[in-house]
Design a binder for these strands. Structure first.
Lengths: 221, 221
DNA sequence: TAGATTGTTAATCGATTAACAATC
DNA sequence: TAGATTGTTAATCGATTAACAATC
């Protein structure tokens, strides 16, 4: 299990982007790339790319640059994409089902082991080869199958209620789509929370649309 | 139409969060709040909140703090949430439909005026009181109805193809869910792009889960 | 008035960029 | 070898935090 203590959030958040672009280079047959070329394409500086990568090791070669496929594999490993962390999805409504269909968990370090909902109309349906189970069995399920992570596609109130139970059952990471800052509840706990605030995201677009001046396009976000 | 030129991305991205918390304060009957109390709840420093707000005006009062509902309204106005920018959705698959059901565009500065897809199986269906139209009519639709923004829930290749056409037709903002950094294509244009990279988001969770040390919970993201 | 809290200026901290010796 | 490009150290820039006079 890799450990990189001194890595800042800013650096960490750029890694998936690097990974994505490197994957694209592979598909288009690019075998090697210099930090200068990479920077040009991805919209960053060459310094930043070299600085970022140097946190994890020396992956390049002077006078040559970086080998695309091996750098891709290295970053994948750093991100833990070669792991199979057991993950469950809670809330198989519109959004939950969309995420199930849209994401490829296997290629992102996770393995989906359970889907839960409360609505009798969806219970028992099959999604991604999994029957949708009743949320009442969640606690017992966790005791038996020990999910490491949970995707929360449930309303705010349900998230507030369920999250602490899951943490007690050993869940250590949340991908949270409820309109609630779950991270604040676990400030001191050994729990990782990735809040996806789609509303916030749309509001920033509204701001920029209504204030269209220079801050045109932000390549990072 | 409000204009705030000197506002950095970091400040801008915190506004929706302030707005969300203020809304919650209103619901729970909190009428006023000091930057110190607010900071404690939202997980920032009081300095930062005051500094951020001061970019837009003096909304507080010495010795009193901020009036919750008027600050809420002010930030909503700054974000342009009281506007009705015409917006279209392209790609009524799983994700597109989830977004239609999940988001309240009216309260976020937009008005949905059209839904488009290519799949004959979904054409004509009604969602949010709108019939799903064929993408072939997109260009003509834009000429007539002048959408200011577009939500892209289509694959990478389709996004690359359609976005420049829409820009030519006057679309000036994209909420982009395709696995593609659309912002890079419009670096110099007067076009705002908000990329939502759900894959990147999940990968950062994978990283943190596998590197669980201190960087535990990031209250912002 | 006295206490509280703002808006703003100055100090600190961290992240990005530039420079360059090392080396393939 | 000579040219190119890395990894890293130093310089710059921007964002966050602290301090405080102004004032409700």
């Amino acid at each position: 299990m890799p450990r990189y203590p001194g890595v800042s959030t800013s650096v960490m958040r750029r890694l998936p982007r690097y990974y994505r672009f490197l994957g694209e280079f592979m598909r288009t047959g690019v075998e090697r790339i210099s930090s200068r070329e990479f920077a040009e394409i991805i919209g960053l500086t060459a310094s930043q790319i070299r600085q970022d990568l140097s946190h994890f090791g020396g992956f390049g070669q002077q006078g040559y640059g970086y080998n695309v496929s091996s750098l891709h594999a290295e970053i994948g490993h750093i991100l833990g994409l070669d792991q199979k962390q057991p993950i469950i999805l809670i809330g198989a409504g519109n959004l939950g089902m969309a995420i199930l269909n849209y994401m490829n968990f296997q290629s992102m370090g996770f393995e989906l082991i359970g889907i839960f909902d409360r609505d009798p109309r969806v219970l028992g349906r099959i999604a991604q080869n999994q029957p949708i189970l009743h949320s009442d069995g969640l606690s017992e399920f966790c005791r038996q199958h020990r999910p490491a992570a949970a995707i929360l596609c449930i309303p705010r109130s349900a998230a507030v209620e369920i999250a602490p139970i899951l943490v007690e059952r050993g869940v250590r990471a949340f991908w949270n789509f409820s309109h609630y800052d779950l991270s604040l509840d676990f400030r001191d706990k050994m729990v990782s929370v990735e809040n996806v605030h789609l509303g916030d995201s749309l509001m920033t677009l509204s701001f920029r649309l209504n204030n269209m001046l220079e801050d045109i396009s932000d390549p990072v976000s």
